[in-house]
Amino acid sequence: MTPSPQDPWALLDAARRVLVVHAHPDDETLSTGPLIADLTARGVHVELVTATRGEEGEVVPGAIAEDDDRPLDEVRAAEIDGATRALGLAARHLLGTAPALAAGAAPRRYRDSGMQWIREGLAGPSDTAGEDSLTRRPLETEVADLLALIASTGPDLIVSYDDEGTYGHPDHVRTHHLARAASAESSVPMLEISEHGAVRELPGTAAAVTAALRCYRTQLTVVSADDAGVLVRHVGGQDQLVPFSAGLRTATTDARP
C-alpha cells in the first residue's frame, strides 16, 4: 500500500534512502539528530548535505587550544565528522563540492551568512553577509547543485527545515527554500522538521545523540542528559533541550519562495 502523502511518518517508514539537507555543521544533530539516529539504527541509508561550513559561528571560550591555528571551518569540519560517525550517517557532502555540484560547474563555496538576534528566540539576517554567502548567491545555482546530489544519491525522501527555519536563521530559511525547490524539480518528496508536525518519540536514540552533541565543543556545552533529552548551552548562553523525538510534516509542492 502506498502511504498517504499527508502522513509524514508513513512516508519515512517506507523510505530506504534519505537525504538530510542542512545549513551548518551541528544543525543536523540539533534539529534532526534523534531522527537520523533512529533511521540509521533501523538500517536506512542516510546521507547529509550541509550548505555552508559555519565560518561565522562564535566559539565557546577555551574550546580551541591556543596553539591550534586551523581556521574555524576546519575545526568545525572535524566536529561534524565526529557527529556523522556518532549518528551512523552513510556519507556527508558539502553543497558546491562534487557530487553536490552541477555538471560542468567549477567547485563553489557557499559561505555562512551569519545572523543577528531580532528578539529572544528569533534570528534575522546579518548586516555583514557577503556576496558569496548562502543567502546572497542565486537560488537557481544552489538548486542545481542540490539536484546533482539527488541524481547521484537517489533518495526516496528529502528532510530539511520548515519555512520558519527553526529559529529564523537566514541560512536555515534559505535552505528550506532550496530543499523545497529541489524536491519539486526532482519529484522526490520532502518532509519538514517542525514543532507543528506529527511528533514521534525516539527514546532509543539517546546515546547516539548525546555523543554527537559532545562533538561540537566550539558551539555548545552539554549540560545534562536525562529521559527528556539533552540540555545544551549554546555559545551565546542560550539553553536548549534537544528531545529524543521529532516532529514531521509533509512539505507543500510550491517550489519557490
Rank of each mutant, 00 (worst) to 15 (best):
E201T: 04
L72A: 15
A106D: 08
R16N: 04
V60Q: 11
H176Q: 04
L178K: 08
L94K: 12
S31D: 13
H93N: 06
A83Y: 01
A151R: 13
R111Y: 07
Q238T: 14
A102W: 03
A10I: 13
A212K: 01
G154H: 09
D69K: 05
S245M: 05
L213S: 09
I36D: 00
F244V: 07
V232K: 08
V188Y: 04
E192Q: 15
L12K: 06
R217V: 11
A208G: 07
W9F: 11
L146Q: 03
V18N: 06
A198L: 15
Q6G: 15
A102C: 06
A179V: 03
D27H: 02
A90T: 12
G197W: 00
A65N: 03
A37G: 03
I80A: 15
T135V: 12
T205C: 02
V242L: 05
L178G: 04
A98I: 12
A207R: 12
L122W: 13
Y216A: 10
A102Q: 01
A106T: 02
T253V: 15
I118S: 08
I193Q: 05
M115R: 05
L30N: 11
A23C: 15
A90G: 06
A51W: 01
D163Q: 11
D163H: 07
T128C: 07
L12D: 11
G130T: 10
G62A: 09
V222M: 05
T97L: 07
G62D: 06
E28M: 12
G236W: 11
D145A: 05
